[in-house]
Amino acid sequence: MLKVEDLHAGYGGAEVLNGVNLEVKQGTLVALIGANGAGKTTTMRAISGMIKPSAGSVTLEGTEVDGYSASRIARLGLAHSPEGRKIFGPLSVEDNLLLGAYRRLPRFFGFHSQAQGELEKVYALFPRLKERRLQHAGTLSGGEQQMLAIGRALMAQPKVMLLDEPSMGLAPVIVQEVFAIIRRLKEAGITLLLVEQFAKSALEVADYAYVMERGKIAVEGAPAELQKDERVIAAYLG
């Protein structure tokens, strides 16, 4: 579904990624873990087109999308829930969700009725968002904002969903809630690439995992193997 080959990218002159290879198969949850500054978020940003890769390729369902603008990649069905959530604060919760479905809705009228089905599904998953659907998104708590960011990505009915640090800055109870949601997304058959600092929890939900070090994939494998790998244990699971 999503294939990344020899991806190079960076900011200004500084190269952060030097040759990342990874693959996310349809219906699987792949975790990308690693220390701070290893290039996890940069990988996500290069995949979704927020930064232009300097070399290498990104293939989404057989189409090479590297070099496309972020909006074009999103319209092709890749939903990226970015680090720091980036919800639209001045807009209502429901407007945030509707915009999530932008790629498949009519631009002027009738978009609300067409999105109704998906909207109900997201509200069923996050009842709290339904309660607050008319509130400004900026007034939500951090956990609720994270739920909104995930819900917004779901609204796109994406082929692949990138989730960057969904647990960042949240209280431990809420982090558990977030992982429960991720598990449910996985059960629903959504193809997911997850970046996480909580390596342990990420490995528990993932089907396959990559460990990044200094802009490259250092180790990869099924979570069960990685959990036994001494280097991984020493660095991230200890």
Binding site: R75, H80, L91
Partner: peptide, 17 residues
């Protein structure tokens, strides 16, 4: 609404397509 989204957060709006 997309117009408002771009003014709120340009990058995030791009991610919505």
């Amino acid at each position: 609404k997309a117009f408002e989204a771009v003014s709120a957060d340009r990058d995030a709006a791009e991610l919505m397509g």
